[in-house]
């Protein structure tokens, strides 16, 4: 019972978060200086009458809450409207962009978390100056080097100076860059957490039982460090979103990030809104899943 209530509460919170983010985005889009009609007007030389007519047909002359209600009503039925600039259904555009971003994000996430776990576990199992220095380096790298700088540097070095890789296309460089960035963000906390988990009283009990180091590591240390791994993978998501955004632009990948950014420059609200909604729902869903996993791992929280 308590478990169901807790899960429902975290779902409810997630829904509230998503709704709030979407609403915020909607109003930010509407208050931004210069709307789509202005932009098109500048480009295509529309007359004032044409502009007024266009605003009315797009519903831009109505009150903000009204516009939002209309949009939200349609969005709930899966209809995100049509792109104003490209005159294509937004849903369709998202559907083509999503797989690119999803692939990039999933690969980077696996690489990043894998690298962080590898380094942290290795440093706990066989503490060495060298490993700790590596961890410090990766950590500092992710703090100090923006992903797009790393991307630019990679292009400069590998494509231009060494001529190894094609400048554009291929996920290898973006995945490496985002992955190292993600790993750097979590590896230090992971290392600390494992260091502390090894010293926990119940791990000492396990040693007093004479269990083998492997058994201790997997049955006693890792479960204790699991909550932090989960919490950190939630944290990685933020870096993942920012990373995909810049990498897609830099490497001209036709993903969600490029789509959103172009829409922002063109004031193409339906796309901005739909893309942000998609991202927000995905993040909230992942956070909620992480929360539930956390409860599943730890019997005390159930």
């Amino acid at each position: 019972m308590a478990r169901i209530v807790a899960v429902l509460a975290s779902l409810l919170r997630g829904l509230l978060q998503a709704a709030f983010i979407v609403m915020l985005t909607f109003f930010l889009c509407r208050v931004m200086p210069g709307d789509v009609v202005d932009v098109l007007g500048l480009e295509g030389g529309l007359t004032v009458e044409q502009q007024v007519e266009m605003r009315r047909s797009l519903g831009l002359d109505q009150s903000l809450p009204r516009q939002f209600a209309d949009w939200a009503g349609q969005a709930l039925h899966g209809d995100f409207g049509r792109s104003i600039r490209f005159d294509r259904p937004v849903g369709e555009m998202l559907a083509t962009a999503l797989p690119v971003t999803a692939k990039l994000a999933a690969l980077s996430f696996c690489f990043g978390i894998g690298l962080a776990l590898l380094l942290a576990i290795a440093a706990t199992a066989r503490p060495s100056r060298w490993l700790d220095a590596t961890i410090d380096f990766v950590n500092t790298w992710s703090i100090a080097v923006p992903t797009f700088c790393a991307g630019v540097a990679a292009i400069l070095v590998f494509s231009i100076w060494l001529g190894w890789l094609p400048v554009i296309g291929g996920l290898l460089v973006p995945v490496l860059v985002i992955g190292v960035d993600n790993a750097g963000q979590v590896v230090k906390s992971l290392r600390e957490e494992l260091r502390e988990a090894v010293m926990l009283p119940h791990v000492r009990t396990a040693r007093a039982k004479g269990l083998s180091p492997w058994r201790i590591a997997f049955a006693h240390v890792l479960p204790a460090a699991m909550p932090i791994v989960l919490a950190l993978s939630g944290l990685v998501l933020g870096g993942l979103v920012a990373g995909s955004l810049t990498m897609e632009v830099l490497f001209a990948l036709p993903g969600l990030g490029s789509l959103t950014l172009n829409a922002i420059h063109g004031r193409d609200y339906p796309i901005i809104l739909a893309a942000v909604t998609l991202i927000a729902v995905a993040l909230v869903a992942i956070n909620t899943i992480v929360d539930m996993l956390h409860r599943l791992v730890d019997p005390r929280l159930a």
Partner: peptide, 21 residues
């Protein structure tokens, strides 16, 4: 604050600039 927490900082800043100019 909890409500905006789900949004990564870079994305939030991006959206704010969209709104604020």
């Amino acid at each position: 604050i909890d409500l905006v927490r789900a949004l990564p900082g870079t994305l939030l800043a991006l959206l704010l600039i969209v709104g604020l100019g």
